[in-house]
């Protein structure tokens, strides 16, 4: 039997908001250790992996591993009906009838909404994703997630103009990270210097660089990744010319959301 409870819907609402625009279906793996979610976009360019350990839930009972594909658009619609302080219960019955039940209960007026979701096929996930050693990344940048989101928005407003394929080049050298994009009539560069000020110790921009690196990514994907900012104050971007870039948001002490995307290569 699977039975989970969260006393505040916010966490799950934020997770769905962070993934449902880019990924249409996801694979949810429940086990004794927690929930692992994986999804890939339809063009197989971006992948998201989420871990929520059992401790993230107020009640967690899973006596048999269960893997289910779910439609994220439908789930996001249902979760928009949930208030932030609703109590969520997730249940799947013993007969594994290919449905899972999400219940939202308002602690104020006792109103209960029940949604049953049928399992669906997924886009070739889950995949085995190895933990690449730190040494394989040429650079790592850690910055406030709100700052990263702001940078993506600025670049979009300049570079976008209806073009879905705007490319952003992220370059790291010793003390700064540059985000560069080309618009119709010019270019735009945002330079972020390493900062760690005494008055804002919680909002540093930190750069660890082994060698200079300059990589190209699709801005629209980065824009979607930046929605992870509702789950964490900080984002860590790991860059390598041979590996998928990782945009990681740690979720308190209880897990993470990681977005993966390979850099574009010159033809």
């Amino acid at each position: 039997i699977l039975e989970l409870r969260l006393v505040q819907a916010t966490l799950f609402k934020n997770v769905l908001e962070a993934i449902s625009d880019l990924f249409s279906k996801a694979n949810f793996d429940f086990s004794g250790t927690g929930l692992e979610l994986q999804a890939m976009d339809t063009s197989h360019v971006a992948l998201v992996a989420l871990l929520l350990r059992a401790e993230a839930f107020n009640h967690y009972l899973c006596d048999r591993d269960l893997s289910m594909g779910l439609n994220l658009a439908d789930m996001a619609k249902a979760f928009r009906c949930a208030n932030n302080d609703d109590i969520i219960t997730i249940k799947a019955e013993e007969d594994w009838s290919d449905t899972v039940t999400f219940t939202f209960e308002s602690p104020e007026d006792g109103e209960i909404s029940i949604f049953d979701f049928d399992f669906v096929g997924t886009n070739g996930v889950p995949l085995e994703i190895p933990e690449f050693p730190e040494s394989e990344y040429q650079a790592k940048v850690r910055m406030p997630s709100a700052k990263f989101m702001r940078i993506c928005k600025k670049l979009s407003s300049f570079g976008d103009s209806g073009d879905r394929d705007t490319v952003v080049i992220i370059s790291v050298d010793k003390e700064c990270v540059n985000f560069f994009t080309r618009g119709k009539t010019g270019t735009s560069t945002i330079v972020c210097r390493q900062t760690q000020t005494v008055d804002k110790p919680k909002e540093p921009t930190l750069i660890e660089m082994k060698e200079q690196v300059s990589l190209a990514f699709d801005l629209r994907y980065m824009n979607s990744f930046s929605k992870g900012s509702t789950l964490s104050d900080q984002v860590t971007i790991s860059l390598s010319s041979n590996l998928p870039a990782v945009f990681e948001y740690k979720i308190a002490e209880t897990g993470y959301i990681r977005y993966y995307m390979l850099p574009r290569i010159e033809e």
Partner: peptide, 14 residues
């Protein structure tokens, strides 16, 4: 001109 490599192939080949 640059090309996007898909992740699916990458993860299946490592």
């Amino acid at each position: 001109i640059s090309q996007q490599v898909v992740l699916h192939k990458f993860f299946q080949h490592i």
